[in-house]
Structures are given as structure tokens and as C-alpha cells.
């Protein structure tokens, strides 16, 4: 493993001397993608857990015009960034000079970007829609006034199928390449970006049901083993524990 000093020295000669400020929320998985990358690279950071009510107004809207987390402020470069995918690419470019989690050039460099963009446009939104309808239908179960709008099963099915399809895409790719990770022979930011949404499958709210782990393991074994490898990483475990602690603290 690269030393901390080496790994936080950026290509533009930027040192992560001052901690980066990460705007986060324990509920949504996306901020934790960024926390994992910060942990992996040993970049110092502070976390500000936001209330949803404060996202769509100033001063936060000046950091992220879309009013969502994550967003970061990097005092080392003076930049503010938003959208987890963009933040991850920025952190890698600025601080991963030893290419611990990325590739400097060639085919792998672009291949990793393809998978990251697949995660942000193909995994996150669809896992998110499934979560929405799961939370909605469970919230409505004791609320009689909503009974007129009862059949959301087809919505749940649509996004459940999409989750299976996404796991299938990863599974088939790993089977084909015989590799342990999506790109080349090492874990990259592209693999890590998928991790937090998996938490919604393997722990509460269990958006595919509590028994889904068995289906995942049996139907998509390569993707299952890949996720196990990623979850075992120290940086990932730390983010998972930090998120649980934040949730328990009542955020």
C-alpha cells in the first residue's frame, strides 16, 4: 500500500493538507461513495450531515444548484463540486497520483470511466426508484386515505427487474473476463462506486426483501463474490460503520 504522504500528493502538486468538507446524509447512499474514496486515499475530511430541509435553499444551493448531497468543498484547491460521479473523478485526478485506485492511461483508463458512468446512470437511479416505491408502499400500509391508489406492484416489479438486470450485467462481465474487479487486475474507483447501493439490498431497508441475498448468491455468483471482496475492504467497512453510527444518532 502506498504511503499516506504519497497517496495524498496530487498530480498538480496539490497536497491534501487541509481537510475536505463533505456534505452528506446517512440515508442516501451517494454521499458514502465519496466517503469510501476519501478513506481509500487517506485524504483528511470532515463530514457535515445535512437535514433534507436545508438542501434546497441557501447557503447550500450555492454549493450544489441541484440541492442534493453529496457535495464537497476542497480548501486545498478552492473548488466546490457536486454530483458523486464528478466528485470521484476529481478526487482521483487531484490526489491519486500513485494510481492506487485508477489507471493513468490506455484502455483501462477509459474502461473505468465507462463503468463509473454506468453506475451513476444505470445502477443508482434504478435502485433508488425501487427504494422509493418500497418506502412508499410500506408507509401507506396504515394510511387508509391512500387506499384508492393501491396497485403499485407493477412499479415495484419494474425496478426489481432492473436491479436483477444490473447485477446480471456485472456478473456476466466478471465471468467473461475472469477478473476479480471490473477493470484490469485491481480494485478501482469504478468498483467502489457500486458499493453503497448494495447496502440497501443486504441490510435494512432490504429493498428486494430479506431473502434476496440467497438469490443474488445463486443467480449472480460472480457479482456476489465481487461485492464480498469490496465490502471486506477497510475503507468500505469504515464508511459503512460511520453511516450506521450517523443513522443511530438520529439523523
Amino acid at each position: 500500500m502506498a504511503s499516506i504522504v504519497q497517496s495524498v500528493m496530487g498530480s498538480a502538486g496539490v497536497k491534501a493538507e487541509k481537510p475536505i468538507k463533505l456534505y452528506s446524509h446517512p440515508g442516501g447512499p451517494n454521499p458514502w461513495k465519496v466517503a469510501i474514496i476519501l478513506n481509500e486515499l487517506g485524504i483528511p475530511y470532515t463530514t457535515e450531515l445535512m437535514d433534507f430541509g436545508d438542501l434546497k435553499k441557501e447557503p447550500f444551493e450555492s454549493v450544489n444548484p441541484n440541492g442534493r448531497v453529496p457535495a464537497i468543498e476542497d480548501p486545498n484547491t478552492g473548488l466546490k463540486l457536486w454530483e458523486s460521479g464528478a466528485i470521484i473523478e476529481y478526487l482521483l485526478e487531484t490526489y491519486d497520483t500513485s494510481h492506487a485506485l485508477s489507471y493513468a492511461s490506455g484502455s483501462e483508463k477509459w474502461e473505468a470511466k465507462c463503468w463509473l458512468h454506468f453506475q451513476t446512470s444505470g445502477q443508482g437511479p434504478y435502485f433508488g426508484q425501487r427504494a422509493w416505491f418500497i418506502l412508499l408502499t410500506s408507509a401507506r400500509r396504515g394510511l387508509s386515505q391512500y387506499h384508492s391508489e393501491k396497485n403499485l406492484t407493477s412499479c415495484l416489479d419494474r425496478y426489481g427487474n432492473e436491479i436483477r438486470r444490473v447485477l446480471g450485467v456485472v456478473d456476466a462481465h466478471l465471468k467473461k473476463t475472469g477478473g476479480e474487479y471490473l477493470v484490469g487486475d485491481k480494485c478501482t474507483f469504478a468498483d467502489l462506486a457500486f458499493v453503497p447501493w448494495h447496502w440497501l439490498l443486504t441490510s435494512p431497508p432490504h429493498i428486494m426483501g430479506e431473502g434476496f441475498g440467497k438469490e443474488w448468491r445463486e443467480e449472480y455468483p460472480q457479482a456476489w463474490a465481487w461485492n464480498e471482496r469490496l465490502q471486506a475492504r477497510t475503507a468500505v467497512a469504515k464508511a459503512r460503520e460511520d453511516r450506521q453510527a450517523a443513522m443511530q444518532a438520529g439523523h
Partner: peptide
């Protein structure tokens, strides 16, 4: 700085407008 801002909007589009 403009590159990162551009990337934020690209990512915003593909994880927001496109899917929704």
C-alpha cells in the same frame, strides 16, 4: 475549474434528467 463544473452537469444529466 470549468472542466469539473462541466463534468458535474454531465453527471447530473445522466443520473437525473435522463433516468427521470
Amino acid at each position: 475549474a470549468e472542466y469539473w463544473e462541466m463534468l458535474s452537469w454531465l453527471t447530473w444529466m445522466q443520473s437525473g434528467i435522463g433516468p427521470m
